[in-house]
Design a protein around this nucleic acid. Structure first.
Lengths: 321, 321
DNA sequence: CTGAAAGCGCTAACAG
DNA sequence: CTGTTAGCGCTTTCAG
């Protein structure tokens, strides 16, 4: 018991006793068993951050920023990857994300609606999502439609008359994901100006440099007179820049390009990349705050919040007139 | 007990009983308490991957690749960030990385020698490091010196006569880190050709795009006749490409640039980036294999392995003659 | 200020 | 095939 008091820095331990305990700890190589502590206390002090992968620049950046905020709040962050998770019913109960964290921040770029209930454990969950879910979760949303619309409008304002889109997709109502939500914004911008939507100028693409390059080649092949490209992510946009360079097209003179995410990378590409930049600081701070108010029991179980993160459009070389 | 048998998929449960248990689990919303299981079993099934950050492309890629290998081996991977960790003695014992994982893979780019013993818990540790440590750990090493030497030699072979280096540093013997180890390879390459080493042409830099750009500007300011740059990482190199572009210098005609890490990004920059590419697959596979043989008790406690990962030099546009 | 008792939820071993 | 017993290492409570 006294050892416990020492290790946890409690009062009421005579300095001499404390010293003796610490000496023994060092000598014996004692290490706290956190499973036992967690079992007894009923909480682990861990907040999990679940994200599809950390190999993509955007996901990596967000994960790191969230982890920093979690640490700042006095919790231990761990990152779990949802990428290649099998989704058996029982598996979701026994394994999966439901370990003993005190809370979970789930970045669910591609998660299906009916998977979400499986993620409810005993602990609070905040979903960082691309679209609105009906389920009872605290939610932090990006202004995807507005951001994509602003990006496309920016292309039109810069003089583009036939902008295409890379990384878009049309999906049935109720199944929106990043791709389709951003494509929606692209469509709205065209509607605003009463421009015709050319479905074949909206290309889906895997979210990689290679995917962006391939889609840009395809777009220019199909629509040689394309003079602007809205890319659903900055990674896609960098791939597109490369493809345009390979085709001997100049950016921004021949084709203007704009991305989404505000990656640092876009500031250092050649040409530098215009982008819709979400408020990264808020994106890390807000989910953690929502979780904390819940962990502190400051909100009723049924009081679910929905916060929207602001963005700004940063114009760089790739869309200069 | 029967519930336990069902949840763990053990034999010897009548199908009907199993069904009843599963129904109850669903109805009651039962979730396994993994802390209790871990306490009882003495193992958690978790392997931790500790890395400085996941916001950098290289670290993010490696973490994701390691996590995939861990999952493939039947363990649950979690990623912990060592970035801004305070290093109090007791803190390292009670908090820190010493939670209840069954094993730890530590990517220690910048870790100090005498910190390592603190990381020893009850579980095996594999250190993925930039230099050799004396301590008794299994170790996976990159061929940093050889790789940097090959990169610099490649610049010389391409016709450079005054190559500088970005992201290098000289440090006292016994305190080598990535920066100094790669700088060592750069020096060796110059020695091989009996070229003079110009200390002021080796610039340290924070490992960011901005750091690479700033260092490149500084290098060209100090040494305007620089005709080649070896960058300690691809991220630095991309920053340098940007700086050279801003200065109106052409790559590779005026200045040739080569990086290190083999990031996907380097294939899509303009110009594409030559790089020393470590065998990424091996880099993810070997540490997990080392950990597994230990977890399976196939090696004696004192039998520490040291594996070296191969690299190859990929020539792309940034160093074409 | 220090320590004894009890129990967190689970499963290995064993009994029925 | 199902259920009972005991104990993993810790901390909350309460006595000394």
């Amino acid at each position: 018991m006294t050892v416990s008091n020492v290790v946890n820095g409690h009062e009421n331990v005579r300095p001499e006793t404390r010293a003796r305990v610490l000496a023994a700890i060092t000598e014996l190589g004692y290490r706290m068993n956190t499973a036992a502590r967690g079992l007894r206390r009923g909480r682990s002090g861990i907040i999990a951050i679940a994200v599809s992968t950390v190999a993509s620049p955007y996901e990596g950046m967000i994960s790191a920023a969230l982890a920093e905020q979690v640490a700042r709040a006095g919790y231990d962050p761990v990152i779990e990857l949802t990428g290649h998770r099998r989704a058996g019913e029982l598996d979701a109960i026994t394994h999966s994300l439901l370990r003993d964290h005190d809370g979970l921040i789930l970045h669910s770029a591609h998660l299906d609606e009916h998977d979400l209930p499986l993620l409810r454990g005993r602990h609070p969950v905040v979903v960082l999502s691309e679209r609105e879910y009906d389920e009872g979760f605290d939610q932090v949303l990006l202004s995807n439609v507005d951001g994509a619309r602003a990006a496309t409008t920016h292309l039109l304002d810069a003089g583009c008359t036939r902008p295409g889109m890379i990384g878009g997709r049309s999906t049935p109502q109720g199944h929106e994901d990043v791709l389709s939500v951003r494509a929606q914004g692209y469509r709205r911008a065209l509607e605003d100006r009463a421009l015709p939507l050319v479905p074949s100028a909206v290309l889906p693409a895997p979210y990689t440099f290679a995917g962006g390059a391939a889609a840009a080649h395809e777009l220019l092949e199909e629509h040689p007179r394309t003079d602007g490209i809205f890319c659903a992510t900055d990674v896609l946009a960098v791939g597109a820049l490369r493809a345009l360079h390979e085709r001997g097209l100049r950016v921004p003179e021949d084709v203007k390009v704009i991305g989404f995410d505000g990656l640092d990378l876009g500031r250092y590409s050649t040409p530098s990349l215009s982008s819709v930049v979400p408020d990264h600081a808020a994106l890390a701070r807000v989910p953690v705050e929502l979780l904390l108010t819940r962990l502190r029991g400051e909100r009723l179980a049924e009081d679910h919040r929905r916060e929207v993160i602001a963005f700004r459009l940063e114009e760089r070389e790739s869309t200069r007139r």
